[in-house]
Amino acid sequence: MNVILITVLMLGLLGAVAAVILYFVAQKFKVFEDPRIDEVQEVLPAANCGGCGFAGCRAFAEACVKADTLDGLFCPVGGNEVMAQVAAAIGQEAVVADPKIAVVRCNGSCENRPHTNMYNGASSCAVAAALYGGETACSYGCLGLGDCEVACEFDALHMNPITGLPEIDEEKCTSCGACVKACPKLIIELRKKGPKSRRIFVSCVNKDKGAVAKKACDVACIGCGKCEKVCEFNAITIENNLAYIDPVKCRLCRKCVEVCPTGAIHELNFPPRKEKETIAPVNQEKAE
């Protein structure tokens, strides 16, 4: 009985002494922090993905609190909703930004873009890109080794084993931009998500001359300029044998999709066309 009493007393005493010491140490080393930083951090998604351009959610929260205006500060993962909460927490006006999403600008699947050699090095796009042009005759397109898949922290991007290309899960993509940074070939772009997620883009980044590009890949942009001519809104520019559709100017009329001879222009999430002549452009090309 005595032993137990002594033990309890000793431990209790030790605990009390430690608590007192801790209290004073904590007082001494106290750092003042704007309580709003914690508030802002609270509403952030806590993904620490770095999509905002800061080292993590905490750093972003600090930046928000310090900044005079929220212009230029945007959490792509949380979107406008979270930014509105952030703005409320620090008593500033929210700056509404267009929601974005990652798009893969390469359609060079194993079928469309035949292999001309076999890569046998480390399974990393960065290593392969530093070594050579890639397994196909197109030295611009997807290398298919999945650096973007590894970079994605939201499980929103997966390599399709059949096509050998990455596919983006629209539900999960937060447009943090990690895949864009990871891709050594710069084929992934963050584009305006568009109304009802509808968007049109050129799914090719090949800058070779038309004939060379076409030989390397069935669905390459050959820089023919048909889309540029048909576009009524001046949204399409052709540079270095490659068309680019400006997402801001594009009005989603889909005319360019119809005229593209190689089917390099993709439309997403549109309802099926009603008229007969506008079947999928790839089939059109084959029928001719």
Binding site: N117, N120, G121, L131
Partner: peptide, 9 residues
């Protein structure tokens, strides 16, 4: 044409 294997040294 046969496909060659390409790898870093």
């Amino acid at each position: 044409m046969s496909k060659f294997i390409v790898s870093p040294s």
